[in-house]
């Protein structure tokens, strides 16, 4: 078995890379995939708290690289999903503690026992980003439908093309269908046309993501439009052809229609 290494990156900070990584990890594991999510944001680790695993960390990525523990000892197994593991970042070091070669070696080792390795890249285009993309077989670029985030995503796509890294797929995060309708938010088609890479997911803006982060239980565990959008991405990654569903929660009339015509919904 040779697992696939996917790096989640964005250029701009705060667009939801860590949320996407945590949720895709959960969604893939719920589809019976063996997954390790790797936090490559050394010095600013967050993936552990997103997954609610912060109290169970003993060793981290830097301990592995510097030989203080074996790779398996640093992996934290998720309490809820037997198939999901976290390789945490070090909190007290910086990005220079790990080199791109170290990341390639760690991933080559883990590839043997997992179906997917998801690397959560730090923001920016410096060494942390270079570390995160070095072992990647594919890249997932997260952006928000707004000018600054799309611009930075384009810059990242350019850098990846120059380094012949890829293929890169696009995840549009925090889309607000109501704002798009009103003409106050870029729509999916425009963002895809501007960036000219293949779309793999659209995730709506959802307040419950905040509650999910509060409790350390990613939204992909639960049913709902947002949780489902992550499962759709997971299934596309597994090769299924999933159409892009409308993002709106069913309104009053949709529900009424479903009651009147149960098979029509």
């Amino acid at each position: 078995m040779a697992g696939k290494v996917l790096t989640i990156t964005s250029g701009k900070g705060g667009v939801g890379k860590t949320t996407v990584t945590a949720n895709l990890g959960v969604a893939l594991a719920l589809h019976s995939q063996r997954v390790t999510v790797i936090d490559a944001d050394i010095g600013l680790r967050n993936l552990d708290v997103m997954l609610g695993l912060e109290n169970r960390i003993v060793y981290d990525l830097v301990d592995v690289v510097e030989g203080r523990c074996r790779l398996r000892q640093a992996l934290v197994r998720d309490k809820r999903l037997q198939e999901l593991f976290l390789l945490p970042a070090a909190q007290t070091r910086d990005k220079t503690a790990v080199s791109p070669q170290d990341m390639v070696q760690v991933c080559d080792d883990l590839r043997q026992s997992f179906d997917f390795l998801l690397i959560d890249s730090p923001a920016g285009i410096e060494q942390g980003f270079q570390n995160a993309v070095a072992p990647a077989d594919g890249i997932l670029i997260v952006t928000n439908p707004e000018v600054a985030a799309v611009r930075d995503a384009d810059r990242i796509i350019g850098l990846l093309e120059a380094e012949e890294k890829g293929p890169a797929h696009l995840i549009i995060n925090r889309l607000k269908p109501k704002l798009v309708e009103r003409g106050d938010m870029l729509d999916t088609a425009t963002v895809v046309e501007l960036l000219a890479i293949q779309l793999i997911g659209i995730v709506p803006e959802d307040e419950s993501v905040i509650a999910a982060a509060n409790t350390g239980r990613p939204i992909a565990f639960d049913d709902g439009v947002t949780g489902r959008s992550f499962h759709d991405i997971a299934r596309r990654l597994l090769g299924e052809n999933i159409p892009f569903a409308p993002l709106k929660e069913p309104g009053f009339f949709d529900r009424l229609l479903r009651i009147v015509r149960p098979e029509g919904g």
């Binding site: 707004e146 000018v147 799309v150 611009r151 798009v180 003409g183 106050d184 938010m185 870029l186 729509d187 425009t190 501007l194």
Partner: peptide
């Protein structure tokens, strides 16, 4: 959003 598109 049209202004955003043009600026981008």
């Amino acid at each position: 959003s049209e202004i955003a598109h043009e600026r981008l």
